[in-house]
Simulated scan of single mutants.
Amino acid sequence: GLPSPFLRCPSQRLLDRVVRRYAEVADAGSIFMDHFTDRDKLRLLYTLAVNAHPILLQIFPGAEGWPLPKYLGSCGRFLVSTSTRPLQEFYGAPPDQTADLAYQLLGVLESLRSNDLNYFFYFTHVDADMFGIFNNGHLFIRDASALGVIDKQEGSQAASRTRENQDIFSCLVSGCQAQLPSCDTVPEKQSLVLVCQQLLPRLLQRKFPSPVQEEIDSALAQCGQGTQPDPEVLRAASRLKDILRPLRTCDPRFAYRYPDCKYDDRF
């Protein structure tokens, strides 16, 4: 099978969510697959195997607070969703704007790590094209194909699944014959380390006067150290957010939080 980070650590709750919210079939909403034709099943499996991004947009919609753009539809290999500008276009933006984007990006990773539904999302790799910004300044994940999901509530079925007891999703991870690695090997810090190593330095480098820049660089260095224990990386990311928060300004360029930011410190 083709590798799919989204299904590396499947749980029954996650698979039920996929089946129930998959919008490309008639009578969507049931956790049973009785309403799936053979063609529907093949289309779903192929999409999950090749690029799970459109599936993630459907089962974790932005309308429910997930940091993903709205899914509008797909046809074959073509996907239609809300347009955003890639993060790399903002590397040369003014300091207050880059501080705002970095702050949002850290907030997105925090919501992926800890949320009410007890799903832990992690990136297998990152690049600037994976994140986009709407016209109102709001940052979203524009490419979720490198996102894995671990169900912290139910745990993963990967370790206990046997060849004789497989569902239709089983071979999408690494092949039916392969022994799946433990999902416990994915650390909480993984996405933070990747972002602090590869994206935030380019967004924040040489943007601010001393000593603020030195504080940012120090927090970034600690956040990007993959050899550090999870709590150390999480603390460094939290400290970086605290540094960035007062560097953000409140004006109409940030329409996603303006004018609320004039009256409420939470924005």
Results as ranks from 00 to 15, higher is better:
Gln179Ala: 15
Leu101Val: 10
Tyr103Ile: 05
Pro181Arg: 11
Gly137Cys: 13
Tyr46Glu: 13
Leu87Ser: 04
Asn115Gln: 01
Lys41Glu: 08
Pro246Ser: 15
Gly226Asn: 12
Thr227Cys: 12
Arg235Gly: 07
Leu194Val: 15
Ala255Arg: 12
Leu194Ser: 04
Ala221Gln: 12
Leu44Ser: 13
Asp116Phe: 04
Asp27Gln: 14
Ser11Phe: 09
Asn135Trp: 05
Gly1Asp: 14
Glu24Ala: 11
Phe78Glu: 04
Tyr71Leu: 10
Leu48Ser: 10
Pro259Ala: 01
Arg21Gln: 15
Arg161Val: 01
Pro209Gly: 07
Ser4Asp: 05
Ala93Gly: 13
Val80Ser: 05
Phe208Leu: 08
Leu112Phe: 03
Leu14Cys: 10
Asp127Ser: 13
Leu68Val: 05
Gly148Gln: 08
Ser174Val: 05
Tyr71Ala: 00
Tyr258Ile: 15
Asp27Phe: 07
Glu110Asp: 11
Lys207Tyr: 12
Gly29Phe: 02
Val80Ile: 12
Pro201Val: 15
Gly224Lys: 05
Ala219Trp: 01
Arg235Tyr: 07
Ser4Cys: 11
Phe32Glu: 14
Glu164Lys: 14
Ala146Pro: 05
Asp217Arg: 06
Gln213Met: 13
Ala93Cys: 06
Phe36Ile: 11
Pro181Leu: 08
Thr47Gln: 12
Pro209Met: 01
Ile141Gly: 01
Ala52Ile: 04
Gly155Tyr: 01
Val25Glu: 12
Leu200Arg: 02
Asp184Gly: 13
Glu24Met: 03
Arg39Asn: 07
Lys189Ser: 15
Leu7Ala: 10
Asn165Cys: 09
Leu14Ser: 14
Leu194Lys: 09
Cys176Gln: 12
Pro201Cys: 03
Ile243Ser: 01
Ser170Glu: 10
Ala236Glu: 00
Leu203Lys: 07
Gly155Glu: 09
Glu164Thr: 04
Ile243Thr: 08
Asn115Ser: 05
Val50Met: 07
Phe121Glu: 00
Gln97Trp: 04
Phe267Val: 03
Tyr263Thr: 07
Ile150Arg: 09
Leu56Arg: 04
Ile168Gly: 00
Gln88Lys: 15
Ala99Thr: 02
